Amino acid sequence: MPPRTRAPEATWHRAKPAPVVLVSGPESLLAARAVERIHHAMGAGVAITTLDAGAYTSGALLAAASPSLFDEPGLVVVEGAEAMNDAFLADGLSYAAAPEPDVVVVIRHGGGVRGKRLLDTLRKGGVPEYTCPAVKRDNEFADFVAAEFERAGRPAPAAVVRRLVDAVGTDLPELAAATQQLLGDVEGAIDEDAVARYYGTRVNATAFSVADAAVAGQVSTAVTLVRHALAAGVDPVPLNAALASKLRTLAKVGASRGRGLDPTRDLGLPPWQVDRARRELRRWNAESLADAIEAIAAADAEIKGGGRAPAFALERAVRTVAELAAP
């Protein structure tokens, strides 16, 4: 591949076909979306061949990318380049020097230093790179959902996007599945009522919804949610663990203020989580937070075998935490 000026990086939603494409970054769902966009842009009927760079056999890339194997231009997707073996590294470097113009080869690299020589060669050669960064901030989850609606040609108002993220939570695959369900089941405009109808009761009764309500001092809501979750068969252990995690985050962010620490830089907490914790800490002081942590620790011991009624122990702990935070 003749040297050229390095192509500028673009995010996954701008991905389009080229003889060789690099899709990089840790967020696998976004990487899958990038490949989908490339495939869609190539038209219907394009054959896809998938290779595993970690279990690669010499010659497989050249065979898959051979135009003679396709009735029309094909797409070759190389997964797991962050774990590539030496055979793929050698073939990847060779192929990058003279790629087939009528075939699209997408190399998916999840991050790390493995295969750096190939990545440097691709980048220096001007290969287009589409990044799939980890989604961490609250607004990034909202942006993802908005992009999913737009990708389907049915843009949703910001209030609908916000309602869906609040209901489903910050698990990217779950958000994607929820968005696709709404797109498939709801005719016409998707509004807040549709989100509430599908996810207002089932998904809100999750571990983190219970934790959020308790930490916010919403006693009746927290108790209702935990009862709903238990009735739906949710294990008390993750419910209690989510509340414990929430309280630990509050404790870390609260303690960082007096120690001159940056919670994101020094404690590794995502910025959106820090912002939210700072808002929630307005209801708490050191004494009440310590009491809440003790209540959750006691419940944890009972739930894991120390008591005979784990559901009751969990509900009692949730109520205690919520009452400590209540106005």
Rank of each mutant, 00 (worst) to 15 (best):
T206K: 11
A189N: 09
V215K: 02
S220R: 15
D171W: 02
Y198I: 01
S288R: 15
N240A: 13
G184T: 05
L267I: 10
G268Q: 06
A241C: 02
D191W: 01
L269N: 05
A189L: 10
D193F: 03
S209H: 15
Q273R: 15
A277T: 07
V253K: 10
D275A: 13
L261T: 04
R276V: 10
A229I: 03
V237L: 12
L225G: 07
L172T: 06
L289K: 07
V226S: 14
L261V: 03
G188K: 00
A194L: 05
A177W: 01
D235L: 10
T221C: 00
V195Y: 04
P238L: 11
A286P: 08
A277L: 07
D275S: 12
D171P: 03
G217E: 08
A177D: 03
L230D: 04
A216I: 05
T249S: 13
Q218L: 13
R282Y: 10
D191F: 00
R202W: 05
D266S: 09
V203S: 13
D212W: 01
A176V: 04
S209C: 06
L250D: 08
L250C: 08
R276S: 14
A189D: 14
T179H: 04
D212L: 02
S288E: 11
S256F: 08
L267D: 11
R282Q: 15
A251P: 04
I190V: 13
P263T: 05
R197N: 10
D235Y: 12
V215M: 02
P238D: 11
L243W: 07
G184A: 13
G217W: 08
L269P: 05
P236G: 09
L183K: 06
H228W: 09
A286H: 15
Y199V: 03
R279E: 15
V210K: 04
T264L: 05
P236V: 08
T201L: 10
F208V: 02
A216Q: 12
R227E: 15
G188Q: 00
Y198R: 11
P271F: 07
D275Q: 12
V226H: 09
V237E: 13
G268S: 07
D171Q: 11
A189M: 10
G268F: 05
A251W: 14
P271N: 06
G188P: 00
G233K: 06
A244S: 15
E174V: 04
E280F: 01
S256K: 10
V186E: 06
A178V: 02
P270L: 05
A196P: 03
D185R: 12
G233Q: 06
R276T: 13
P270G: 06
G260L: 09
R265A: 13
